[in-house]
C-alpha cells in the first residue's frame, strides 16, 4: 500500500536529495536519510504508544509538522539554487551578506548537504512531515500502546509499529533515489539546471502546502 503513496508524497524530496548529490554515491546518503526518518517515526510511535491517544499527540505536533513542511520547502529551494550555480550566496543575502555569520554558515551547510552525515538530520526533520499513511500508522501505534500491560511495553509496541512502517517505506524511496541518480551521465550540467528548476518548484509547493496546512 505505502509504495505508491511514499513515491507520491516523498518522491520529489528524494529526487531533490539525489540531484544534490551530483556525482557522489547515492547509497549511503539515502540510507542515512531513511534512517533519520525511521528514527523520527519510531520516536513518534513510542510517544503514541505510551499515551495511547492519537488525537492528543497529533494536536500537539500539528504546529511542528506545519513548520517541518515549510522548512522542507525552504531546504529544497536552497539546495536547488545552490546546485544550479545561478545565484551566489552574496546575491541571496544582498549587501548584508557576511560569509562568516551564523545564518549564512548555516545556509551554506544546508545547501552543501553533500556530506553523507548531513542526510541523517535531514531525515530526522523530514520524518515529521504530515502524511496520511504516517497518521494511519500512528493510529495503529496508539492502538498497540492501549493494549499493552504497562508504559514500557506500550512504548516498545508503539515504536515497533512505527519502525516496521518506516522500514516499509525505504524500498520505494530507494527506487526513486536510484532512478533520479544521474551518475551515469557524463555531461550533467544541463540536467542539474533543469533539476534545479524542478527543485525550486517543489520547494514552493511545499511552502504553500505548509502555510495552508
Amino acid at each position: 500500500m505505502g509504495f505508491g503513496h511514499c513515491i507520491g508524497m516523498c518522491g520529489p524530496i528524494v529526487v531533490s536529495l539525489s540531484l544534490n548529490l551530483k556525482d557522489k554515491n547515492f547509497l549511503i546518503p539515502h540510507l542515512l536519510y531513511s534512517a533519520g526518518r525511521v528514527v523520527t517515526y519510531s520516536i513518534l510511535g513510542g510517544v503514541m504508544g505510551v499515551t495511547g491517544s492519537f488525537t492528543l499527540v497529533a494536536s500537539h505536533i500539528a504546529g511542528i509538522q506545519k513548520g517541518a513542511m515549510i522548512l522542507a520547502g525552504i531546504l529544497i529551494i536552497i539546495m536547488g539554487l545552490a546546485m544550479s550555480g545561478w545565484i551566489s550566496f552574496g546575491k541571496v543575502f544582498g549587501d548584508s551578506y557576511n560569509p562568516g555569520s551564523f545564518v549564512s554558515k548555516g545556509f551554506q551547510r544546508l545547501s552543501r548537504a553533500k556530506s553523507p552525515a548531513a542526510y541523517f538530520p535531514i531525515g530526522l526533520l523530514l520524518g515529521l512531515l504530515p502524511c496520511g499513511p504516517v497518521y494511519t500508522a500512528l493510529l495503529a501505534a496508539a492502538g498497540a500502546g492501549m493494549k499493552a500491560a504497562g508504559p514500557l511495553e506500550a512504548i516498545i509496541k508503539g515504536m515497533g509499529v512505527m519502525l516496521c512502517f518506516g522500514l516499509g517505506t525505504v524500498p520505494a524511496l530507494f527506487l526513486v533515489a536510484k532512478l533520479a541518480d544521474m551518475g551515469w551521465l557524463k555531461k550533467r550540467e544541463l540536467i542539474y539546471r533543469i533539476g534545479a528548476i524542478l527543485m525550486v518548484a517543489v520547494g514552493i509547493y511545499f511552502i504553500i502546502k505548509g502555510i495552508r496546512y
Binding site: F3, G4, H5, I7, G8, M9, G11, P12, V15, L19, V176, L179, A180, M182, W184, L185, K186, K187, R188, L190, I191, I194, G195, L198, V202
Partner: peptide, 23 residues
C-alpha cells in the same frame, strides 16, 4: 549526450508525474 540528457530529463519528469498518479 543530448540523448542522455533528454532521457534523464524524461526520467525526472516521469518520476514526478508518475508519483502523483500512483499516490
Amino acid at each position: 549526450q543530448v540523448l542522455k540528457i533528454a532521457l534523464s530529463f524524461l526520467i525526472l519528469l516521469g518520476i514526478l508525474v508518475l508519483s502523483s498518479v500512483v499516490a
